[in-house]
Amino acid sequence: MVRDWLVRIATFCALLLVWQLVAQQMSAAILPTPQRTVNALIALIERGELQTAWGQSAVQVAVAMVLSALLGVGLGVLFGWYRKLDQLFSPLFGSLFLMPRVALIPLIALWFGLQDVAKVMLIMAFSFFEIFFTVRNGVKSVESEYVDVARAYCVPQGRTLRTVVMPAIRPYIITGLRLGLVYALVGVVLAGFFLEANGIGGMIYDLGSNFRTAELMAALFSVMVVGLAVNLGLRQLETRLTPWQVSR
């Protein structure tokens, strides 16, 4: 274990060195040195730009996630439970899921404008389906014995859902929420690119089009940190809350 980490640290240092050497040969607009990138990151934080951008994005993501969680879990349980309903709508949902969600951007701009409402919609287009499909598949895969026993004892359907199905699908709900949040990050970046240019996406877009590459890389670094924190943190939470579940 210790040796693994030594190897990792050594490669990381080697990588930094290569970056440094390559960057020295190039214009800073193409590839800034590691030093410049770190300075740019510090400058962005000191001026408060990074915090402002992430603050805006966080609000948009939070609203969208609450909505897609409610809708996704609700509809997921409904569609997983009533098979007929699922069959009726599955080709429609399936094709929406397979469609490049980016294609929805012009429609969202047409229907909801460019402001926060449109952004929340775009983020939901990314996060909702992940939650919905995970929860639906979870309900479908609940051991039929459990449900049969409940039925044999004439437990009313509402109560079966509440006391048998809901506990059984808890791991799926948590996995769905994690995937939904990871995809919500994609949505919020895109929203900044194509709708009103604020938040982290707008910031990245502006920095890129002005060739402020050092700051751009610093902003991308912050995206990576947030993505990692979301992904790994929620996976930790997943194993903590549902230790019996093999996470996917």
Binding site: V189, F193, G201, S209, L220, G227, L228
Partner: peptide, 9 residues
């Protein structure tokens, strides 16, 4: 963990 789309610029 990084949204690839962010790398586009």
């Amino acid at each position: 963990s990084v949204p690839i789309i962010a790398l586009v610029p």
